[in-house]
Amino acid sequence: MTGFALGVDQEEWCGRLRALSARRLRPLAEKGEPGRVNRPLLAALGEEGLLERVFVSGALELCLLRESLAYGCTEAETALALQGLGAYPVLRAGSPAQRERWLPGVRAGRLVAAFALSEPGAGSDAAALALAAERDGGGPGGAAAGVDGVDSVDGRGWRLTGEKRWISNAPEADFYTVFARTGEGPGAKGVTAFLVPADRPGLTGEALDMLSPHPIGSLAFDGVPVGPEDVLGEPGRGFRVAMDTLNLFRPSVGAFAVGMARAALDATLVHTSGRSAFGGVLADLQAVAHRVAEMATRTEAARLLVYAAAGAYDSGSPEVPRRAAMAKLLATETAQYVVDHAVQLHGAIALQRGHLLEHLYREVRAPRIYEGASEVQRTIIAKELYREVAAR
């Protein structure tokens, strides 16, 4: 890939993914129940080897994968991304035993993963987590001894008490990557990441009625026991686990948005070039043509910024936080603009249930909020810019 175009092999691979989305994945998505995990769709993603690609791909390949799936089937894209988001901390920070136990099932689409970071009082400010991991005595009856019989070095485990909310795939996931406050230091320095199976005693969940085709729910932790074998990485280093995951997935959220924008743009080109109006077609009207040109230009700019952020991640650039934030910000805001104007140019038909744009209009709003709202991305960008100035 150059700075401006994909290679022939990459373009062909993206084309095959778009065709697969339309041929196999879209029919499975349409049979799914809104607000529930679509396990047949997950199984198909596993059978096609796409879930495996999430864990072996670089950031650019992940972006191309998500963009191509989003173009043809947003539900398939979201199902794949949520598997990656929930299980990537296990891949990067998990022990050999954790990886062996959970990742094969995730790759095959048999096990459902979830990333449990947000709380009722800690959405955008992830460092303000309140879910408490309180130390518990080891030995007989202790939390550490009660979880697979393994004690920590000092003979103690933890009990999780509190709530998580707006967690994708909850309460139907098979395991959760959970971030809790263990108190080694203030703010982000006192957060630990845990792998918590869904059947752990004291863990319950409730579905939330959200504008989303996939499940989103809350989780209640009533003294849930966890031991050292459940820790992902090191105690007190969980915030870094979360940020490493988000730095990889933020550009690919932008890719998801670009895929939706490109689908909306292509639908608009077809509609406006064929729809009769005022003695010609809509495309003959300068107001329409100029709007389409603006939609296309913004989409292309967002696409290139996403690819640049992914390239920065793959090259190990120190600019990853800034570039990832820029990519997510511009791409998600652009997708909202493009889909909204596509609806306007289509007119009433775009609001009919089942129309592509009616679907995209509902899907496009959430990415501006999750994995860091647009306002958070602007804050990250500004902080990184001023940090660079101070370093010079």
Rank of each mutant, 00 (worst) to 15 (best):
L345G: 04
T332N: 07
R262I: 02
V270A: 14
A310W: 01
Y361P: 00
G311V: 03
T334P: 04
H359S: 13
I349L: 14
R275I: 01
L356I: 07
R262S: 08
V339K: 08
I369G: 01
L351E: 11
R353F: 05
A327H: 03
R291P: 00
V281H: 04
V270G: 02
A264L: 04
G316W: 03
R298G: 15
A308W: 06
L351F: 07
G354P: 07
G354M: 07
H359C: 06
E375F: 06
H359F: 05
V270P: 02
L305P: 01
A366R: 14
P321K: 05
Y307H: 14
E363D: 14
R365N: 12
V376M: 11
H341R: 13
D266K: 10
L265Q: 07
A287G: 12
Q377N: 15
M295L: 11
L329F: 12
R291S: 12
Y313V: 10
L329P: 00
A261D: 04
A350P: 06
A312E: 13
R323D: 09
S276A: 14
Q336N: 12
A257T: 08
H346Y: 15
D284V: 00
P321R: 03
A348H: 06
H271G: 02
A350S: 14
V258G: 09
H271N: 01
I349P: 00
D340W: 00
R322E: 15
A301R: 15
T272S: 13
Q352H: 07
V292P: 08
E375K: 10
E371C: 15
L345K: 01
A283D: 03
A350F: 05
A308D: 13
V343F: 02
R303A: 15
L304I: 10
Q336M: 12
Q377F: 00
L282I: 02
A257V: 11
V306K: 09
A309N: 06
Q286R: 14
H346K: 02
A277S: 12
E294Q: 11
A296L: 08
E358L: 04
A324S: 15
